[in-house]
Design a protein around this nucleic acid. Structure first.
Length: 475
RNA sequence: GGCCCGAUGGCGGAGUGGUGACGCAGCGGACUGCAAAUCCGUGCACCCGAGUUCGAUUCUCGGUCGGGCCUCCA
């Protein structure tokens, strides 16, 4: 089965062939750690985590090397540290920890490497030196600038002819630039700002060179896939590409360029009802990370995604349905002799459909559809009391979900998430009481207890083998 | 000003030159002491105009609307 991916450079979906199938390399531009990250910042995290998983499925876990960088040298970081009167590292560590915790909650696997600018300074300085040595960069007034004239293909990735950019430039061009499009590789630090030594004087790196140097150091150029948000195409990725090629690493920088669409916050009302919800950190207090992940993947990654409360509610409901199937399958199987090792061709076809959809440029909506088809088959098998199909289908459903980072939770835990032991005990006691009432057909009492449970945000469901319960709303 | 996207039913959102994906919500029914879940049934969706075609939501051109980038930005 071949994986095809849309490549921004060639503007086409192409079959993906890694340079070396035993070492597949993926790099994604990560966050600048100066604050909690916006939910939109996590779209690429989730999208490329999905790609990471797909690649691992295809080439083997050990073969895929995924680097996601962290920018920990930045004006906004400096400002924040100054505001709080704490060392810069305090800020960067705090928000990097928060970022990683949020990413984990969204079901993202840790990347193979998470390079930081502060830990890559030698490589950055060396690469700037290489560029100067190749006559692709020049020093001017304490700065080192990349000479865009040295790279004839400059503008090709973003589809912006050079002369047009100059015409449309809306920023003042620094006088020391040879060409208006030239950009900074190294610049002097202002007072009270961190600085590092370099042959061009003490200072700090420009934004673009960081990524190129981190890629070179973490993965080695060229890489197979470079990802990021679509807003990074220009100038960031354009510049990375120019640097990478001109620093003497051959013609290719990244074999495939992938860019996820923007996440729009829509009408400003959204945050009103639930507080200011734009932060993943806050959203995760209200919804399961898995539901947020589902919402983020509910549209194709290249399409813009409108973020609102409804989207996430729908995501939650969709997952509820899937977990319900899993739960029912588990309950059914619990009363059956273990039935493993059977084939279920129909369910396997659905599993293959999930895979095929993902291999078609990560078409998650279609993958979701196949997942539901599989779930329907499991459901039907439960109704038909077909233990073999239930067993194999349930396993396949979990596996198919797992390809995308879903359905890893225990169904019971999913429905009862948010309940602490205290509540659980109380609920179990009430349910036992209610069962007694029901046994004597004391309906008013049974309904009273149901109401009492409802007040605890718990919903009881009577089944043939006793009652089950779940938390109604996590929020 | 330049460049680039998108427009699908109440909502989200794939896809296709010709049998209306999928999910959420709704409605009718079955089941249930009630409820939930589940099952059965139910929706005259493809921005406008022109063109190509036997046939267009799908291709081409024009328009309208919405969004992005050109500056830090996922």
């Amino acid at each position: 089965m071949t994986l095809s991916l849309y490549d921004t450079m060639s503007r086409a979906k192409r079959p993906f062939t890694p340079k070396d199938p035993s070492r597949v390399t993926l790099y994604v531009c990560g966050p600048t750690v100066y604050n909690f990250a916006h939910i939109g910042n996590f779209r690429p995290v989730v999208v490329f985590d999905l790609l990471f998983r797909v690649l691992r499925d295809l080439y083997g876990e050990a073969a895929v090397k995924y680097a996601a960088n962290v920018t920990d040298v930045d004006d906004k970081i400096n400002r924040k540290a100054a505001e709080e009167g704490v060392p810069i590292a305090t800020i960067t560590n705090r928000y990097l920890d928060a970022y990683n915790a949020d990413a984990r909650a969204l079901g993202a696997l840790p990347p193979t490497f998470q390079p930081r600018v502060t830990e890559t300074m030698d490589a950055i300085v060396k690469m700037i030196g290489d560029l100067v040595g190749q006559n692709a960069a020049y020093a001017a007034e304490g700065h080192v600038l990349f000479d865009t004239q040295a790279f004839p293909d400059y503008g090709k990735l973003s589809g912006r002819p050079m002369d047009e950019m100059i015409a449309g430039a809306r920023v003042d061009v620094a006088p020391y630039k040879r060409h208006p499009a030239d950009f900074v590789l190294w610049k002097p630090s202002k007072e009270n700002e961190p600085e590092w030594p370099s042959p061009w004087g003490p200072g700090r790196p420009g934004w673009h060179i960081e990524c190129t140097a981190m890629i070179e150091e973490a993965l080695g150029l060229p890489i197979d896939i470079h990802g990021g948000g679509i807003d990074l195409v220009f100038p960031h990725h354009e510049n990375e590409l120019a640097q990478g090629v001109c620093a003497g690493h051959g013609h290719e920088y990244a074999h495939v360029w992938m860019h996820n669409g923007f996440l729009n916050m829509g009408e400003e009302k959204m945050s009103k009802s639930v507080g200011n919800v734009a932060l993943a950190h806050d959203l995760l207090k209200l919804y399961p990370g898995e539901a947020i992940r589902w919402a983020l993947l509910s549209g194709h990654y290249r399409q813009p995604l409108e973020w609102n409360d409804t989207l996430i509610e729908q995501a939650k409901s969709a997952l509820d349905r899937l977990y319900r199937v899993l739960d029912d399958a588990d309950r059914f199987l619990a009363g059956e002799a273990p039935a493993g090792g059977y084939d279920s061709p129909a369910a396997e076809a659905d599993y293959a459909a999930v895979q095929a959809a993902l291999h078609d440029d990560l078409n998650t909506p279609t993958a979701f559809a196949a997942l539901f088809q599989l779930a329907d088959k499991v459901r039907a098998a439960v109704m038909a009391k077909d233990a073999r199909t239930v067993s194999s289908g349930r396993d396949l459903l979990k596996e198919a979900g797992g390809l995308m980072g879903f359905l890893g939770a225990d169904p019971q835990a999913w429905f009862q998430s948010g309940a602490d032991d205290d509540l659980k005990g109380k609920v179990e006691a009430l349910i036992a009481e209610r069962q007694t009432a029901r046994a004597t057909k004391n309906w008013p009492e049974a309904d009273r207890i149901r109401a009492e449970l409802a007040a605890l945000n718990v919903e009881v469901m009577d089944g043939p083998n006793g009652a089950t319960w779940r938390i109604k709303e996590q929020a």
